[in-house]
Amino acid sequence: MWPLLGIAVVVVGFAVGLNPLIVIAAAALVTGVMAGIAPLHLVAAFGKAFNQSRYVSVVWLVLPVIGLLEREGLQERARMLVARMRAATAGRLLIVYLALRQISAALGLMSLFGHAQTVRPLVAPMAEGAAEARHGRLGARARMLIRAYAASADNVGAFFGEDIFVAVGSVLLIKGFLQQSGIQVAPLTLSLWAAPTALLAFAIHGIRLWRLDAKLKRLAAEGDP
């Protein structure tokens, strides 16, 4: 049971607001020591896993292109484009993005959108532009709220769309694990049964995005600084 102390370190560390890098390193140390792993062996195991997961960082390669386009007015153009659409509101725009993200993920096109590729350079500025066109200059709270919702639309769309695609990692993991337990399931069946939750996720988050517009209106009326 003692290795579970590492989980406590994570929970307390994040709750107290320590730097996450320090919290994670401390949790790894505590867990490993409690499990009786020698310190040098532990450092090597941590280094190996860090090195093997470098692929999750490939998306950072996009930063120079996005920065270059931002310098030439990418975000401003995205705002202008939306300000001219009279039906556009921040909430409606994010609902459209949620749907696009979910459908494309369901078709296996996960890398089509993402926080670095689309949310920061395009989606968040568009939603801000739509809100500005409607409520005038945005206060700091409204702006942060719109950005946070833009990121949430990307996450909800990606998580609850990807399992409808047959060849995605999580579907293969489910199949693989059940197979080890002596149970055969077809990937297609798994992706079929991911559909009800996908629809529910779209409904729940869609309603919340739809209500974002009312929230922004209230913030504007209160004179959000």
Partner: peptide, 18 residues
């Protein structure tokens, strides 16, 4: 580096039987 750090923590958790 946070995502890679968490992946590495996951590996230590697995190694320790968490």
């Amino acid at each position: 580096i946070l995502p890679q750090m968490l992946a590495a923590l996951g590996a230590v958790f697995a190694l320790s039987g968490v």
